[in-house]
Amino acid sequence: MKHRILIVDDDQDLLLILKESLESYNNSYEVLISGSVQNALIKLQSESVSLLISDLRMPGIDGFTLLTYVNQNYPDLPVIIMTGYPYKDVDRMSYEKGAIGFISKPFKIQELEALIRKTLQKQTEGGTLHDISIPLFLQMIEMEQKTATVRVLNRATEKRGVLFFKNGELLDARLDNTSGLTAAREIISWDDVSISIENSCNLNQRNIQVSLNALILEAMRVKDERPKSQQTTGTETPNLRVTPDKTNKVLTSVQAKLKNAFLGRWIPNASYVDNSWGKMIKSIQEISSSLNFGDLKALYLERKRGLPLAIVPDEEIVVLELDSTCSRDKLLRVLSL
């Protein structure tokens, strides 16, 4: 899947160099360029973009104004600021205004590419799912009270939509130039999708007031009323396996351990990276250090709601959703090796 990156700068030569260098550096990047903020806004309305990189000082509307506009209207779209602005604290100001990355000109293309890669990886930090029923997946998010930005790719039409969840509540949705209920209803009615999960959500305000169940029913009605020619099939069997981001070594390593130990006879309902457990793990580590228990290797957790989980703290935190057929002793032994 191509990541579409929009770069905004009034320096045409630099734009062309960046486009050529980034696209040849990584063939999963498709770079769109724009010489002004006004032109960038038009592109944002017509193109689905994964990342925006913008200069600050430009004639007419400046980069800070673009940053503010993007945060308000495209809260899922990460922005990297690149500038040769000579003033102190410009990086701090960029972060305060919502940029997720900052790079000072002049820079090496490798530095910018590393920053882009890091930013795009965050969009799939919770894993990527294929061939899943969206309603089932959303009910799982609600049940688990997860906070996430969920990006949905309609593989039939190549359209991309975004759903914003905070503590299991659907706050908002965005699809092309629509948002709220209209966008959510359309996204939920899609078949044949790929879903990527970012374990955070930049929104706080709720723009969708109906319950998720009511919304799912409404989306199913929209789907049923769609002409047969626009419907796709083959996604009726729910598949909750989370496929790891290929670059996520920690998750891949845990999955390999399980495969070796259980010889494929048992697999978790789902496995994914969820670093939102970091705060809890850190608290436990601090207390256990005072008791001289050593590092936490693995954790089994059954809460008042939701499926039992096994959590493996490492450079990243891997979460496994368990079922009743799992041998807990064996699983914890394997995970703590």
């Binding site: 608290s283 207390i287 256990s288 957790l301």
Partner: peptide, 24 residues
Amino acid sequence: PLLSIVKALDNMKEAELIFESKRL
């Protein structure tokens, strides 16, 4: 300090923690 671990495991019904030198 164990109660602090319990508190950290918000809404916990049951938990099992494997540390380097102990199991809880």
